[in-house]
């Protein structure tokens, strides 16, 4: 059964029927937003059952859209959090990829500005490495981007998508060794992205992120994970009900190969490890349960099946 990411938008009225339908079909609701009288569900559902969900949702005013970034957590990295980079373009890009289902986190580096002095701290690098990919938003001059990337990419293990003002081809040629993705004609700007050509650049960023993440999924598929992150999410929700009381928009953030559980590590890590997925198989057997560098959260990294000899 192949699960595909979708967004369901519809009225609040009888939306629980859609949630039940998705659960019955073997899908997962990753995130649920209730906005006044509208509900938005980010889900992973079986590909063949999308027409059925559309048919059931139609009388309720529901619409189904493909959202390729559902179930991913993406770091949007800016050289700082000053007026030079925020709210445009950093917030615009973070918001845009959020609309397509990603959980985006903005990371403003403490000393990421300047071509000679740019650097990242160990904490910043570790936080970025907890994501599925990192989108670096750099500036307008090729010369500065090349020099800065040498320092900023050091210690980053996740795929990097680099954006800047020079064209994509120029960036691809200039950056050595290469990074996972490039999006040119973005750079630093000081106004909201609303014109058609600007929105097309945001679409280009999304397309590049999707391409990079698809490559990562293909890589993972060669040695599949011992369990699906979405399945582990439901296991944790069922067995640790305290997570349902967390007020964060995503108490459990689903990643491509793991989860971020927004509960204190010291108090809940052992309970997460001992949560049972199937008879005798606990999360601790198929995943590393680690302290996250983001607050005191728990990071669950699912091991590949070759390491555990288990697929649940």
């Amino acid at each position: 059964m192949i699960l595909v990411p979708i967004t369901y938008k519809g009225g609040v009225y009888r939306h629980d029927e859609i949630i039940d339908l998705i659960a019955d079909l073997g899908g997962y609701v990753i995130q649920k937003h209730v906005l006044a009288t509208e509900v938005v569900l980010l889900c992973l559902v079986p590909r063949d059952d999308i027409p059925l969900i559309e048919r059931v949702g139609k009388p309720l005013g529901g619409e189904v859209e493909r959202s390729p970034l559902v179930g991913t957590e993406i770091a949007v990295v800016t050289p700082s959090l000053s007026i030079h980079h925020l709210p445009h373009p950093a917030c615009d890009i973070a918001e845009y990829i959020r609309r397509l289902g990603a959980k985006s986190n903005m990371i403003g580096l403490a000393r990421g500005y300047g071509k000679r002095v740019a650097q990242t701290s160990a904490e910043e690098r570790e936080i970025i490495n907890e994501h599925d990919c990192a989108v670096f938003l750099l500036g307008n001059f090729e010369h500065c981007i090349v020099r800065k990337m040498e320092a900023l990419r050091r210690g980053i293990d996740v795929p990097i998508v680099l954006t800047g003002k020079p064209s994509t081809e120029v960036l691809r040629t200039a950056i050595d060794p290469p990074v996972a993705g490039y999006v040119g004609d973005v750079g630093r700007f000081m106004h909201r992205t609303k014109e058609a050509d600007e929105l097309s650049r945001l679409d280009a960023i999304v397309a590049e992120i999707v391409r990079v993440l698809d490559e990562r999924r293909e890589e993972i598929a060669k040695d599949p994970l011992s369990g699906s992150p979405a399945r582990l999410m439901t296991v944790i929700q069922e067995q640790i009900p305290e997570v349902l009381a967390v007020t964060s928009p995503t108490p459990i953030t689903v990643q491509i190969a793991g989860l971020r559980v927004k509960l204190p590590y010291a108090e809940f890590a052992d309970r997460v490890r001992s949560a049972e997925i199937e008879e005798g198989i606990t999360i601790g057997r198929i995943a590393d349960v680690l302290p996250s560098r983001m607050r005191d959260y728990i990071l669950v990294r699912i091991k590949p099946s070759s390491e555990t000899d288990i697929v649940v």
């Binding site: 500036g139 307008n140 001059f141 090729e142 010369h143 003002k165 020079p166 120029v170 750079g187 630093r188 700007f189 000081m190 106004h191």
Partner: peptide, 15 residues
């Protein structure tokens, strides 16, 4: 670096 000139014209305009 001529490639950055138009960006800075836009930035200066906006600011």
């Amino acid at each position: 670096e001529a490639g950055g000139v138009q960006s800075y014209i836009d930035i200066a305009n906006d600011v």
